[in-house]
């Protein structure tokens, strides 16, 4: 009976499935669309009822204004510098750690691995005050270094790299050793090229995380010239909460790089996300 009922109206099932996905998809998309539309409106259009869905002509000047006179160019540059340095170094450091745990035997291996992995259980916020004090002690508060150094430590990265490097056949490493390669050379010329997909997945992961990071730079950075874009955006909102067209232009700038990276590396990113979910 039931099976017949299921077969009887596949069209209805199909149509409703598509409707559900389209409605859901639009719900996900609309805030972004509204952000872009608002970012192209004039101040007058902003407050019009009914809302102006197609601002003609689009006011591109909002972007120039945000970019030039409200320092977003600088915020953007800061975020680019910090994110790229952190991404490259966090991936390298994770690979080094992962290689060590995957391919060597040494006293204290288990304990050391736990020492790294246990940091997964430490919420970032608990270490906020000590980090602030440590960087204050080092004289590195309000510098790029303050944003860069803590970002380099990814316990997930070490774990992930260990998983992938374990799969590299031992023979490959040994034949390089027989050819006279040193361990560092093996890491550089054998291990890294063999885990390229994993490296790019982790890189995308780290990049998105550090680009979006907020609470630590909020605490560590005080001068306007050094603010990353998230902090710059948040302080701009607090100062100019009536200029929503400019705020939306700023928010768009804060989102574009991550969305671009996501669209370009979608496969790697999703693979990374699924891996975090399946690591249990």
């Amino acid at each position: 009976m039931e099976r017949q009922a299921q077969k009887a109206d596949p069209l209805l099932v199909k149509v409703s499935a598509y409707i559900i996905l389209i409605v859901g998809g639009i719900t996900m998309l609309i805030p972004f669309l509204w952000m872009i539309i608002s970012s192209l409106q004039s101040r007058a259009q902003l407050y019009q009822i009914p809302p102006v869905w197609f601002p003609v002509p689009p006011r591109w000047a909002n972007y120039t204004e945000v970019w030039v006179s409200i320092n977003f160019a600088r915020y953007f540059l800061n975020s680019c510098i910090v994110s790229s340095i952190v991404t490259v170094s966090a991936v390298l450091i994770s690979a080094m750690g992962g290689f060590s745990f995957a391919k060597y035997d040494f006293p204290g291996k288990r304990a050391l691995f736990l020492y790294f992995i246990a940091t997964l259980m430490i919420p970032y916020q608990v270490t906020l005050i000590p980090l602030f004090l440590i960087f204050r002690y080092l004289g590195l508060l309000d510098t790029y270094m303050a944003m860069i150094l803590p970002g380099m430590t990814s316990a997930f990265g070490i774990f992930m790299m260990r998983q992938f490097i374990t799969n590299i056949p031992e023979d490959l490493l040994d034949s390089a050793r027989i050819d006279g390669a040193r361990e560092a050379g093996i890491f550089w010329r054998v291990v890294l090229p063999n885990i390229k997909p994993a490296l790019s997945a982790l890189a995308v992961f780290v990049f998105v995380g550090i680009w979006n990071d907020f609470i630590w730079p909020l605490v560590a950075i005080s001068s306007d010239e050094l603010k990353p874009i998230q902090v710059g955006l948040a302080s701009f909102v607090q100062q100019h909460s009536a200029s929503w067209h400019l705020v939306m232009a700023g928010a768009t700038c804060a989102l574009v790089p991550v969305i671009l990276v996501f669209l370009l590396f979608q496969r790697q990113f999703v693979a990374g996300v699924v891996l975090t979910g399946m690591k249990e």
Partner: peptide
């Protein structure tokens, strides 16, 4: 992709919007 857009977006920008 559509459903995942909000996931990768920064909380600050999302909250602002």
């Amino acid at each position: 992709t559509l459903f995942f857009l909000p996931v990768v977006s920064s909380m600050v920008a999302i909250a602002t919007v």
